[in-house]
Nucleic acid binder design. Sequence first.
DNA 1: AGCAACAGTCAAAGCGCTTTGGAAAGTGAT
DNA 2: ATCACTTTCCAAAGCGCTTTGACTGTTGCT
Lengths: 343, 343
Amino acid sequence: MNLKELSQTLGLSQTTVSRALNGYPEVNGATRERVERAARQFGYRPNVRAKGLATGRALAIGHVIPIGTKPELVNPIFGDFIAGAGETYSRYGYEMILSIIDGRNEEAVYRGLKSRRAVDGVIIHGPRISEPRISLLQEIGLPFAVHGRTGHFDKPFTWLDVNNQEAFREATNYLVDLGHRRIGLVNGPEKLDFAYRRRVGYLEVLNRHDIPVDPALMHSDPMTEDAGYAASRAMLALPDPPTALLCASLVSALGARRAVEECGLFMARDVSIITHDDALSYLQNGGDTPIFTATRSSVRDAGRRLAEMLLEAIAHPEAPPQTEVLKAELVIGQSTGPAPRKD
Amino acid sequence: MNLKELSQTLGLSQTTVSRALNGYPEVNGATRERVERAARQFGYRPNVRAKGLATGRALAIGHVIPIGTKPELVNPIFGDFIAGAGETYSRYGYEMILSIIDGRNEEAVYRGLKSRRAVDGVIIHGPRISEPRISLLQEIGLPFAVHGRTGHFDKPFTWLDVNNQEAFREATNYLVDLGHRRIGLVNGPEKLDFAYRRRVGYLEVLNRHDIPVDPALMHSDPMTEDAGYAASRAMLALPDPPTALLCASLVSALGARRAVEECGLFMARDVSIITHDDALSYLQNGGDTPIFTATRSSVRDAGRRLAEMLLEAIAHPEAPPQTEVLKAELVIGQSTGPAPRKD
DNA sequence: AGCAACAGTCAAAGCGCTTTGGAAAGTGAT
DNA sequence: ATCACTTTCCAAAGCGCTTTGACTGTTGCT
């Protein structure tokens, strides 16, 4: 059933039916009622392509995910993020289109999305410190919103981020207050902005307390269980091993815990662990009581919110870009304790 | 730049330009060359909506993901699957559209995709044993392909599955051969077809060896770390605890390992663990040598392949539906060993 | 009664593409 | 020179929607 058929059935023009269904004011209340009932009865839904062609809008938002050999843009986080964003999209009648690409021709993909009019905007995931995508999108004029933030650009843009720096400052502080002086950092890839910021937060606290910075205690790797394990293992094998580990994600922390236990040590008693926890739906930090002490911020909420911000920006192109910072909260779990006394 | 402008620039009709770019034979070689060069030069890409409207095809495949309160359709697996499928789509010029829905109105969503002509087909994830989506899609005539398989339907359909039953038979056998008699099953939700099949495989081996089936040794829960931990913990607390655990996923197995270690036991020596491993990119089963003995099958390969099968089915609607079974391979890791002697 | 204003409706144009049904030009055989 | 094809190109229709501009009655006001 298309618009033409529906309007013929009703004995009305396409114009009137279209207006009735799209909530335009110049339609009689009774007529609108009748049209809506008929549409429901016949299961009429406007053809999304025809609508897009006529309006010039795509009613779709793109997410471009480069998949290299290394899983840098961590998969599970992405899953939760789009779950959140998807909720927003369906609430606003938008569609989410996903492009999985092999990483090399990223620029071509964005240009393609723009010139084919495939989407009204895109969300940028995992911004690096130096982020070529932003200037590219500004140049070609494709609306976008960034999950995370990044260095200085001439033109402002829409973004949403967690207060990574502050969160890791707080976490490091918590450890220092517990008496820890040797604190290992199991960070994510530091060319990603959020990882960089976390290290800055960590270093700030060390400096403030005159704790020497030891490069051997700072690892930066993909946030996998395996890498978390390897980094922790390496640090625990040092002559002067850390008594606390600061991890970038729950997955890394699982690896860290494995390393700790494999060394015959006990978490919390011998080695404290704090991790950032993205509150992923399938990988939770324990049930009622958190296992790991963690800086927690729901990435799903972030998705929900950033999608709203992008739709907002598309609807009001003239408005100045919005930015928002989500505060991660420090939750105390069973993975931290006072630094063991040296003897 | 649109087709009209491009054709004017070239002094050709839209027809010829369109044909030249779409590889139709009735265009002079030289002309085609000229058109292609100009298209490249001006960055012309056909408007995807106009094209879809004109051809009646959407050039898009839908993935509908219900997100309830419980993460049943496990997130991380899904991530890898669509990464694989996405590779196929971009190779064939298709787009992937993702619908995140709240689970209650699934039927309405599929009907909507069909009537709005939003997609040319859909992929069905996580089929349950009794699967209403299949008859629905057959009824409304929306092409689909199923990741996994399920009970008997009058009309055949396209699916791709892992040989779950056989894989778990093999895994159980391996444990029995190692002398284990008390084998716990940390299964996924058994209303999902694959989990059901795995249990069948497990039970077959117990029966063949006259090992008594103990309901207390069979758990069926969402495949989270937490649930894996809880199930294992419960079984290890039994008066006659299992000496081996068979897990549904690597995430569950991480939980199982935590339970084992928390009981002061050693994996492999006291309790053997075998898990199914979906070869997820971000959560690998160890580096070079596998940590867990596992039945392994790449879910990303599955995505790649099933997407091909669906596109094939769409291109040839008259052909009989194809089905395919991927064989999971048993890889021996460090998590299994001979059953401890009772004394 | 006469006129402006307005509510309610419609026909038709247009979005950017594909595809149908020719037409013009070229080719070789008669 | 004529005919029968081919080859190469084109004008125009059509995909299903939105939106412009115009057309009817009604109503309200003088």
